[in-house]
């Protein structure tokens, strides 16, 4: 009886996974079909007659290489700020027992909720005043500021569960706070770091609003902007090209995600959720 129920549940979950994956399935199969076939048989498995043509065509038309480079650069800088500098701050607010630090923790938590979109126009002006308009650094700083609060929140949760004895022994040995952080704490938080980097990098990769408003799409095209421009000029008349383009935007992050998948749960389970 136990076995049967188990099996049923497993089937139910698999069914749900199938339903959830329908959109991805659609993108995958249609990226390999010519346009007329997509219109007539959207669900059918492709016969691969066009092979990778769709994606190659999209590749040529989208100027995707520059977009990959730009987006990657923005993501990298943003990660350094949000994850790297965030970890430092999280250490301070979660380990030090002064009320100042605990109130800063609440400040950072509140920042998670600030909708940056409401301040787009002041942001534009700010970047201009700092001579950072239409630059990769400018937009990366904004992403860093947006994503850091959540990183600090997650890191704090995790760091609280690290036993104090580790640090105490380090101090007794004469280590400064800096050394303690880099040599003792850092190795312990690498799994969480991996998870945070994946999650935040994906959100930077996919974001459309900020690059649209803050960057010139010729100087610094991001992947999402390239796709957006691509979409708008094709309409519905050439679905094969469209799906090819979608595949190009999805592929890098899918690869990133699948290869780092195991760190995900590991990173989160090693105590990030222990408050």
């Amino acid at each position: 009886m136990r076995q049967k129920r188990h099996l049923l549940l497993e089937l139910g979950v698999i069914l749900l996974a199938v339903i959830v994956s329908v959109p991805l399935y659609l993108v995958l199969i249609n990226a390999f079909k010519p346009h007329p076939e997509i219109v007539k048989h959207p669900l059918s498995f492709p016969r691969f007659e066009v092979g990778f043509d769709n994606m190659v065509n999209a590749f040529e038309k989208m100027d995707i290489v520059k977009a990959y480079g730009t987006t990657f650069a923005i993501g990298a800088v943003a990660m350094f700020i949000a994850v790297g500098l965030g970890a430092l701050a999280a250490y301070a607010v979660s380990r030090l027992k002064h009320p100042f630090f605990s109130s800063m923790y609440w400040f950072y938590t509140a920042c998670i909720l600030i909708p940056i979109q409401s301040a787009l126009i002041p942001l534009v002006l700010l970047l201009r005043d700092l001579h950072l308009q239409n630059s990769i650094f400018g937009i990366s700083f904004i992403y860093g500021a947006m994503l850091a609060p959540f990183c600090i929140f997650m890191y704090s949760g995790f760091m609280r569960s690290i036993p104090y004895e580790l640090e105490e022994s380090a101090y007794l040995d004469g280590c400064s706070t800096f050394r303690t952080f880099f040599q003792i704490i850092l190795p312990l938080i690498l799994p969480v770091t991996a998870s945070l980097i994946i999650v935040q990098f994906i959100s930077v990769w996919n974001d459309l609003q900020l690059p649209l408003v803050l960057l010139n799409s010729v100087d610094h095209p991001t992947v999402s902007i390239s796709l957006y421009k691509f979409f708008a000029s094709r309409n519905m008349s050439d679905l094969s090209l469209l799906f090819g383009g979608i595949m190009l935007t999805l592929l890098p992050i899918m690869i990133l995600f699948i290869s780092f998948q195991r760190y995900f749960v590991k990173g989160l389970s090693t105590g990030a959720v222990k408050g």
């Binding site: 250490y91 700083f141 860093g144």
Partner: peptide, 12 residues
């Protein structure tokens, strides 16, 4: 430790 990110959060 807190300073860099706090400055960035405040400014941006």
């Amino acid at each position: 430790f807190m300073a860099p990110i706090t400055i960035i959060i405040f400014v941006f």
